[in-house]
Design a protein around this nucleic acid. Sequence first.
DNA 1: CGTTATTTTGACCCATGTCAATACGGGTGG
DNA 2: CCACCCGTATTGACATGGGTCAAAATAACG
Lengths: 277, 277
Amino acid sequence: MLDPAVAFTFNSGHEAEIATPGLPATTCVRPCSSPGVVATEPTLRSLFLLQLAETFAPPRAIFWEGDAAGHVFHVLEGCLRVSRVLQDGRRAILGFGYAGDLLGASFRSCCPFTAEAVTPVRLRRLPRRRFDALVDGSRDLRSLLLSEISSEMAAAQDQIIHLGRTGARERVATFLLNIARRSGAEMVAPVEIDVPFGRLDIADYLGLTVETVSREISKLKRDGLISTTGPHKIVLRRLRGLRDIAGIDDADEPSGDTITHTATWRYSAKTGEHRYA
Amino acid sequence: MLDPAVAFTFNSGHEAEIATPGLPATTCVRPCSSPGVVATEPTLRSLFLLQLAETFAPPRAIFWEGDAAGHVFHVLEGCLRVSRVLQDGRRAILGFGYAGDLLGASFRSCCPFTAEAVTPVRLRRLPRRRFDALVDGSRDLRSLLLSEISSEMAAAQDQIIHLGRTGARERVATFLLNIARRSGAEMVAPVEIDVPFGRLDIADYLGLTVETVSREISKLKRDGLISTTGPHKIVLRRLRGLRDIAGIDDADEPSGDTITHTATWRYSAKTGEHRYA
DNA sequence: CGTTATTTTGACCCATGTCAATACGGGTGG
DNA sequence: CCACCCGTATTGACATGGGTCAAAATAACG
């Protein structure tokens, strides 16, 4: 397993690398020509540096499912949710986005979901065409983009496993641990996490109902694994216990890229076959 | 919704374009140099043409979760499943692969799941490095790869919605319709579909148990929506009814790329803001 | 400080899981 | 070609996790 809480079309760059608001006019002349737009070390996120930042107040949508995918976004600050609704109104939240995340990098013709601000969101946008052109122009950036998307896939697959094969308690525990991991503060003492979204969002994300989410949280409190100060501040008291519930083997995937098996495919010129050893 | 049954790290190329086994030695000298490996119209799948085909007998694995991601595969024929297991043995099937699918194109350092043959599978493989190099060398191929991966994402997200927000009946109906769609035979009269996988595979794919899957299928039979000739041959009799159960609005996403909203973001040089209209 | 949305808790029920028995089907060997 | 056998599928009886409906408690906000 890798990173269940990581949202889909964005991926936090581990370092939030929030740029200072003042435009760094030092490096580049104009944001339109293609070669070497940013002088230093080009990352996907640095492409956005020249764009002005916008703010979205909480329930406002950044874009809607079905919209033409005209822009790619870099979240500077705040928190958003990404969701889809079935015809009859049922909603599923596909993931959450945080500062540092890229949003929309993997869209093709249209947005496959709606993105809405949960807390005030500050972000920069880049027209799709420009983003694509810039990325396509650099081998490094192309590689970074693929990695980015690959992590999204991994996260989506984790989510599939959880939704398909785990119970409410397990999902809630995993969810809390993932928020903690995201928050940077690494995993030792009692960790206080900030849960900006409401219970309904959590429920729609975990494939449960508000009531079940609430009950499971209460149960965890009763068992002394967590404690709360209001619905949006949760203190994880016994990480070990939470991890047990979440079914994390410990020593299990600390970095998501661990290779467990060492056997691999060898080609034998002699027999003309591939074999696994 | 797009394509729930589409598996994850492959995507059928709509045309299975199964190459004739005899190697087409006409176009290219050797499979090692980079520029213009295949003369005609380069597609991702044509990159594999010079590789010899291998066969995997049914329960054999093509690779295991955690393996180094050393190859990319092109499925020529047969059917495979892609799965992950939790520490306690619970298994989730992330998707199924069919002839025409690409497998492993989106991996980075290691395989995020296990792939096993369900029926005898014929495929060609390409070392990752070569695949990456070839794709990276052509703008068209890069674009095709991104589209490919983007569809995988879409499929994964559909699956997330189903697992999180629909009931057993709905999932089974959707599943049957998706197999039918895959099988090419387009959607009119009674469609007979071939279900190569066992009930356990279906259950692990839909996040249910064997018993529930079996019961739902029996119920659909009782209601006259389908009929069977053995567990692997199912005739869809009332597509409309199945679609209703599956919650498909009809006129809903026939092609997955439909743009529903036409509003979009406009930049106003005057106010210096983006607005949605 | 009142008003409203959100969260929590309780009582109840249903869909789905669990356990167990039976029936089917596909392959093998006679 | 048939009989047997074993793995898979189906069906039944029962248990239970989580959904539903409703009310109370708490938090958010003007």
